[in-house]
Design a protein around this nucleic acid. Sequence first.
DNA 1: AGGCGCACTTTTTTT
DNA 2: AAGTGCGCCT
Length: 674
Amino acid sequence: MDFNTLNKEQLQAATFEGKHLLVLAGAGTGKTRTIIARALYLIKKGINPSRIKILSFTKKSANEIASRIKIEGKNTPETKRISGSTFHSWCMDIITKYGKLFGLEEYSCIDEEDRLSAIKIAYGKVYDKNQQKLNNIIIKPKEILEVYSYSINTQQNLSTSIKVKCLENTNDTDYLIKKTEEIKEIAIPVIKEYIDYKKSRHYIDYDDMLKIVATVLKQNEKLRDLISSQYDHILIDEMQDTNPLQWMLIESFIDNCHLFCVGDDAQSIYSFRGADFKSIHSFKNKIPNSVIYKLEENYRSTQDILDLSNWLLRKSKLDYNKQLRSNRGFGEKPFIKLAEDDWDEADFIINDIKNNIHNGENYRAHMILTRSMYGCRTFEAACISCDIPYILFGGISLMKSAHVRDVFSVLRIIHNHKDELAWMRYLMLWEGIGEATASKLIERTLDCKNLHNYIDVIKQKGFKDSNIYTLLEKVISLNDNVDTIIDLIVSELEIIMQKKYENWDRRKNDFNALKLVAKRSTDIQEFITKYILDPIAELSELETSTLSNDVVTISTIHSAKGLEAKYCYILGVYPGNYPSNRAITDDDIEEERRCLYVALTRAKDKLFLMSRIQSNYGIRKNNANLTENQSYFLNALPENLVTIIDNPNIDFNYDFNDDDYNINIDPFNDFDFS
DNA sequence: AGGCGCACTTTTTTT
DNA sequence: AAGTGCGCCT
């Protein structure tokens, strides 16, 4: 990298010589570039690359930083040793290496879906079905999971989490206390049961990975020293998304390491995971010997796009103290397109894209942003029917789709025969086995020492379909590569999965991708752990290498952080989405504003906000206590900031009378065989 | 009792 | 795409 291409502020940050630094950097001001420059500067200075740790929140951005360091650093042996991790994968690395010190020797990582199943099992053990009805289900298993996870991530007690996550905004303190106690009474036994369940089955969930490492390091000075002395510099991207648990982890490193953090409070959109955008403001208090720099010049967007973005933040009650200025000057004003419905919206965008392609643009210059995955379904369908190539970020990953989990359950059983959740999934695949039968069967396997004992238990039960156990026996005896094993499992399960899934042919293709991925793992254990931790990045890496590169990007705003495109289209910009119907408190609403802000600032040249013609678009459930400014972010938008497109619709419903047309030909038989 | 198909609703965001 | 509720079948 040529350090002369950095601006003064970026260079000052990259070559910082003090102990700890926070770089407050607005959207498009070269955050990633600065981190990369910092890493290269440290290497140039002679710091051992393996003593530099780069942390981010998504593997996608962590990998991107690491790979750009390699490219910009001209692929020297030093830059190749730089690695990027997420907080979670870093903690897993530490646990893998020092498991004994953390009291963990054998364990299986479980993902979110498994965690929910485990909570449901715990719920079922504590309350039988009749009791559930009696209690009128004031908290569902999924909510218990949310509340429990929020407690861990924010380091707050259960009552506080319940108030934040389950109860509405009210000043009635008596009501709050009473309701909280009621919910707690239901939730506590379930959480206790879940913790016991995890312990006895050696399961670790996402939160445990962080919590175990963070608490042990905080509490044990010797271990803290051992691990923190392995690094000189820790570089953290997207600092505004750091939650209290992650702060606690970082704090164990501030004595022995230098922190270099980059973030933007206006782009904090992860409060549901416990991040507090205000925490970045107390950086100086929390981290002694720290300095804060600012990056303010935007290289990405035209001033027109930034004017709208700045206006959105200015309208907030909070003072973000943010005024982005472009070094590119003015271009085209952002467009607001008033569409009839989802299809009209999709039509408009696809026409615009086709038009750009016609004028020599690439598909890859276009990005579609959506608040929720579900909100882009119509657009995706339109892409398919119009032959627009696209890649979907933040969608259902390979690991999350049902048919892949089915095949995975076999691998998991082979790897760890005590993996009850995998057994449940596997057993319930077969005809005639439901939840009740599977649970009973698993109860009988309590004393089983090895996989063969398990198989014997199933044999004793005597199902009519012997494949239930012969499949497992076949897989055990096949001592081969992971991808060959997957092949066998797929062929053995094909008949049953074909019945279960309507679109089997399309789903079947996924296994080719899975096998490609599996080829890179040496054994089942590695394969499983790797993909529980990070299924998406591997798939998208695979997709970009296999498929053509020139595709339209469709992404949730949360997955779009750090991405940019020449043409950006934001789907469904109307109340219900912005702000989301689920946002209740003032803080929620503010986060929704930041979410839209992140979306606006992705665009380089042309920005389209897809709104609706009707004024009564999505009706808010909790409209009552919202101000006009909160209920719809584009209220009172100054006309001169945007161009409104409201093109006439073509009316296909012209009148006609059946009788006027006398059609006597059978079009199906109108074929010339001669 | 347990399994299963059918119609129905509901769907934030991520490691 | 997945969860829920309901009724029917074994």
